[in-house]
């Protein structure tokens, strides 16, 4: 069968190919931080940063209906609601709205709110100056708290959009099971 020299050659080829396979397994994992970095650089991932408002000209020629919504994703039983369901505003006008969080349970928890928009494309025109979604929130047992949100609708908002929905989903952060690793990644997101 195969001679000793060709066996040696085969073994060397084997080593190289196994190395490539292991490298690619690592590359799969390397995609995780790479993905976050790319999102950061391209600005896709800036959900938790205040927006800069450049144009403060109020466009009184048209009105936008702003709808508010909030949901909680948790297993402990607290809830969050907007104090107003809708508001009619002019683009460029400073808008304040309050979200009320009630924690009827005896546990303290940490939560992070993630905003989403309808229509999706309207998201980039909702400029939030102040928002409880910029940081993690620590909610004490039996606490009720009001969170103000201050925002401006960019006058650049396309003319065919007449209604914009701003919806928050409040996620519980499982502090107990956190590994160092994840805390670090959360800190990274906040910064």
């Amino acid at each position: 069968m195969a001679s000793d020299t060709s066996k040696l050659e085969n073994r060397q080829t084997l080593k190289k190919l196994v190395f490539i396979a292991i490298l690619m397994f690592g590359f799969g994992y390397a995609l995780v931080p790479l993905y976050k970095k790319i999102c950061e650089v391209t600005g896709v991932y800036s959900l938790t940063k205040p927006d800069e408002v450049v144009n403060t000209q109020v466009d009184e020629s048209r009105s936008i209906v702003l709808e508010f919504d909030a949901n909680s994703r948790n297993e402990t039983g607290w809830e969050i609601i907007p104090l107003e369901n809708r508001k009619t505003v002019h683009p460029g006008e400073l808008v304040q709205v309050t979200f009320k969080l009630t924690n009827p349970t005896a546990t303290t928890f940490e939560a992070q709110a993630i905003p989403s928009y309808g229509p999706k494309e309207a998201g980039q025109y909702v400029k939030k100056l102040e928002c409880f979604c910029f940081t993690q929130q620590k909610i004490n047992a039996n606490e009720t708290r009001d969170f103000p949100v201050v925002l401006v609708i960019d006058p650049e908002l396309p003319k065919d959009v007449t209604t914009v929905t701003l919806s928050y989903t409040m996620f519980e952060i499982e502090v107990k099971s956190t590994t160092e690793n994840r805390q670090a990644s959360l800190r990274e997101r906040q910064s």
Partner: peptide, 14 residues
């Protein structure tokens, strides 16, 4: 295969 399969293995491991 050598380049792609390990990435799938990573994804399902995650």
């Amino acid at each position: 295969l050598i380049a792609a399969m390990p990435v799938l293995a990573g994804a399902v491991t995650m």
